[in-house]
Amino acid sequence: MSPLDKKLGRDLWRMKGQAIAITLVIAVGVLMLVMMDGLVNSLDETRSAYYDRYRLADVFAPVKRAPNYVLNDLAAIDGVTAVASRVVGGALINLDNTLVPIRAQAVSLPRR
């Protein structure tokens, strides 16, 4: 064994406490990185699956008082496969079992 290898080994042994602590910190850091990466991927996939299952749009484009023929312009944009319109409005409503009015959002449904 080369004297430099012996020196490395002895120096590491002499500072073994520090070396173990540094190794543990790095190991925990790598562990956290792998866990968080898996979590983010999982949430991404869950969101995509949920949107797919409930047919949610990829893009919502709120506009004020737009005429219905704007839909044709939007449908003509490259990459747009389907366009649907809704009318959305807000209101305060009173329910029997609540003391204060509740803010509500009304969304129209397409004609069947």
Binding site: S2, P3, L4, K6, K7, R10, D11, R14
Partner: peptide
């Protein structure tokens, strides 16, 4: 001298 090497090993650094 390298404190973590013996006298012989310190000399071997050069003979290598």
């Amino acid at each position: 001298l390298m404190p973590s090497l013996t006298a012989r090993e310190n000399v071997e650094l050069v003979t290598e």
